[in-house]
């Protein structure tokens, strides 16, 4: 695996733009029984390539929902989400899955590692969907674990790793296929301050040294301070933007 150090984006399949992510008039509603809950209400957001964006807001403000829409994990009720020129709402379920595998790295609050697999096998998961040979996959995994500083823990299972180490494995899994975009949902939310700082430093390094575009949902102002820009959501709408 080559973790690229460029800041310029890949050539998109559709519209070329400086913005890697373009969210236009997005609405998202959920049904709970007969009640319709509007989580996002006509939201617009643009994220330039190479940016480290923090999204803050109270619980229920729609941060994770917006992150899921940008990552192609869910579909908007109305509006459009385009990433690198690909309009996600137009992709079939199968193509969307392939798109995710190729272009998005996901980092979760609770790491979401598969407990039955070693750290290396967890990192290898996205590569199982590629045509890479076993030795190539092994090489990519070793590089990703080296980037997050966990080469020495490759054969350990998640239950034997600390929270910080598990999150590093999660990040290695997110970057192993060299995606354009990293989406992090409260990556430090389950960690102590020291481990959280290490994770944030790692994300910052991925952004500045390897040119990854990062969108991070967080409640923690200390975490958002690491980002190059912070947006606030409230009741499904973008309220303010702030630079660090």
């Amino acid at each position: 695996m080559t973790i690229e150090t460029r800041t310029s984006g890949r050539t998109g399949t559709g519209i070329e733009s400086d913005n890697l992510v373009s969210v236009e008039g997005v609405e998202k509603t959920f049904r709970r029984g007969s009640e319709e809950i509007r989580v996002l209400a006509g939201l617009n957001l643009r994220v330039p390539r190479g940016e480290f964006l923090a999204m803050m807001g109270p619980s229920g403000s729609g941060k994770t929902t917006l992150l899921n829409l940008i990552g192609g994990l869910d579909r908007p009720t109305r509006g459009s989400v385009a990433v690198g020129g690909d309009r996600l709402e137009t992709l079939s379920s199968r193509r969307l899955a392939a798109w995710r595998a190729q272009h998005v790295g996901l980092v979760f609050q609770f790491y979401n590692l598969l407990s039955v697999l070693s750290a290396a096998a967890n990192v290898e998961l996205p590569l199982l969907l590629t045509n890479l040979s076993r030795s190539e996959r092994k090489r990519h995994v070793a590089t990703a674990l080296e980037v997050v500083g966990l080469s020495h823990r490759a054969n350990h299972f998640p239950r034997t790793l600390s929270g910080g180490e598990q999150q590093r494995v999660g990040i290695a899994r997110a970057i192993v296929s060299d995606p354009t975009l990293l989406l992090c949902d409260e990556p430090t939310g389950d960690l102590d301050r020291k481990s959280g700082d290490e994770i944030l430093a790692l994300l910052q390094a991925l952004n500045t040294q390897h040119g990854k575009t990062i969108i991070m949902v967080t409640h923690d102002p200390h975490a958002s301070a690491r980002a190059s820009r912070t947006v606030h959501l409230e009741k499904g709408q973008l309220m303010t933007e702030a630079a660090p």
Partner: peptide
């Protein structure tokens, strides 16, 4: 949750 993670990583429904 793990199945959700696999799908999030790019595993298709069919897979």
């Amino acid at each position: 949750a793990e199945l959700g993670v696999l799908k999030a990583l790019g595993f298709t429904n069919e897979r």
